[in-house]
Nucleic acid binder design. Structure first.
Lengths: 145, 145
DNA sequence: TTGAAATAAGATAAAAATAGTCTTATTTTT
DNA sequence: AAAAATAAGACTATTTTTATCTTATTTCAA
């Protein structure tokens, strides 16, 4: 139903917080308190962001998380892809051959939906974490296909 | 995970088919055969489109479905809203006060996500069923907020 | 006027995805 | 060695989506 998951919501909130505060280390516990998020869920989310190199961590006491790159270089799309997987508006647009729609229909939708999906992706690729923090939204050019 | 539901997929496929063929009545059985879709699921989907006045029907023998308006006047957004409900990227953007995020967080996300959602909606509002049929995609202006 | 073919409507079940919780292991500092 | 943190994975619960089934109603035509 055209919705981002809670994982993405948590991820953006946490990363946005880290991007807009001066300290350099943030524990999961601190972030979950500060943002009123479930500790367990946030911790699990952070680990996925780590694996995708969007966030780095220091283990042990005095450990915590920090952004792996400047906020301006982290696209919303990076976070979404990491936590929700590549968006696929419908199966027919999937790269996965098992979901290939050619078999089920003459796939009248494939091309049009692919173009629409491209536009949606452009929005998330065209918006960085920095833009979110700064409430700075640039014009997004959606090309004519 | 930023995805349209199967209902929407079925709805667009069926309506697109009706828009691009010369006959004027299409039974659910015929459409399900032609497009290789589950009859039951399609039938239920059609009923929702009826209620939203996107599709009209004639009951009884010789009955069937037909578009309630020209394809050019049916926005993709109409179909999505009817079958999936209004898109809400995250709860915080919901009009439903129960989902109001202010209580849970300082809602640093509200405004940015609302703007992004507006852009996504613009894509679906800016594309008509006719555009889909004609593979005709106009430039979509996303204003600067 | 009755049977057949279609839509209408709603109940229910099954499956899949998402969200939430818990436990244990590992790392690092003091 | 203890404490505080991340890492990892198993597991459960909940919600959403998808699928199926049943019954009722409408309409046409023999």
């Amino acid at each position: 139903m055209l919705r981002l998951s809670k994982k993405v919501e948590y991820g953006i909130l946490a990363m946005q917080y880290m991007a807009s505060h001066p300290e350099d280390l943030y524990t999961a516990k601190y972030l979950s308190n500060e943002l009123h998020l479930s500790y367990d869920f946030l911790a699990k989310t952070m680990q996925k962001l780590i694996k995708a190199d969007l966030v780095d961590s220091q283990q042990g006491t005095k450990g915590g998380y920090f952004l792996a790159r400047p906020a301006s270089e982290i696209k919303l799309m990076d976070i979404i892809e990491t936590l929700d997987g590549r968006p696929e508006l419908v199966d027919c647009v999937s790269d996965n051959p098992d979901k290939d729609c050619e078999k089920k229909t003459s796939c009248l939708l494939h091309d049009p939906i692919k173009m629409i999906q491209k536009k949606v992706e452009d929005i998330f690729t065209g918006t960085s974490l920095g833009d979110i923090v700064e409430h700075n939204f640039v014009e997004i050019e959606t090309k004519n296909y």
